[in-house]
Design a protein around this nucleic acid. Structure first.
Lengths: 152, 152
DNA sequence: TATTGTTATACTCTATAACTATA
DNA sequence: TATAGTTATAGAGTATAACAATA
């Protein structure tokens, strides 16, 4: 029988459930998963377009449209870098920050019913184990950046 | 401080990591996350278009294009229902099934490094806790259907 | 009348290639 | 020459509204 893959399958299953929650709540605010991640990333960073694209694993040309639409809604803004006249900084606006925080609270509230069935000690245990898995992922991949701000 | 949300945040973080893996492997086979889910769902179901849309939480008009593109690649096929002449059944082809299985193996292999750092007893524990969370989600939402086939 | 599926339309997300401005 | 960002283009994914066929 060797390895039985039960853990990997459980991770995939759970992740789809969590993503369904994020997609629904994002949709309530006209935000795609990607826009959600952009807002989350910008809560504590002021990257250039290229850096933001790298964080998200997207092409820089994709960022142009993403930032353009978010800017049109007043959620983020672009500023010229003083040092390098080619570069464009992206930062979150007060309205964008408010929205990001509201969404984060809604996501926490929406997930709570699914985790409430666990006892306090199991909750703590699960948190520790997930952090361990995520930390390994961070070490191996360039997939940082969640709703919750900086990860590592 | 009340609840501290650490578990909910860890779930979101980990889910983004897992989705990044799925997105990359899907992309290697020209499959979006949605197409991945379609293939996974059809591994043990032969639903109508409307049922498939409901499983995925999508509009039926979205399914037309999704199934159309998968059919063009020979991964799924459509058949007329004998009972209801309005209905269209969707089913996976042998080629589609092979691809779904190959992708599942690649996903398991890609996630293994992230879970290998856990001891055997921690792996078992994490699996049990995730299943518990997913089961709660299933009870509350209509978000079934993963790469791994039927969930509940 | 209600339901099943498709079509028409519009918008977001995404990448590739070509371009401009700066370094 | 190389890098930062945008634009042009094309295709996938998504929803809404309108439609044809069937129930």
């Amino acid at each position: 029988m060797g390895s039985d893959d039960a853990l990997e399958d459980a991770l995939v299953r759970t992740s789809f459930r969590v993503m369904a929650v994020l997609t629904r709540i994002g949709s309530d605010h006209d935000l795609s998963l990607t826009q959600l991640r952009v807002l989350g990333l910008l809560r504590d960073r002021r990257p250039r377009m290229t850096e933001l694209a790298a964080f998200l694993g997207l092409d820089k040309s994709t960022m142009t449209g993403l930032v353009e639409r978010a800017e049109r809604r007043g959620l983020v803004a672009r500023g010229k870098s003083p040092e390098d006249r080619r570069a464009v900084d992206v930062f979150i606006t007060p309205a964008g920050r408010e929205l990001a925080e509201r969404v984060q609270e809604e996501v926490r509230a929406a997930l709570a019913p699914f985790t409430d069935r666990l006892r306090a000690d199991d909750r703590q245990l699960l948190t520790r184990l997930l952090d361990s898995v995520s930390a390994a992922a961070t070490a191996n991949q360039a997939t940082r950046g969640t709703l919750s701000g900086p990860t590592g």
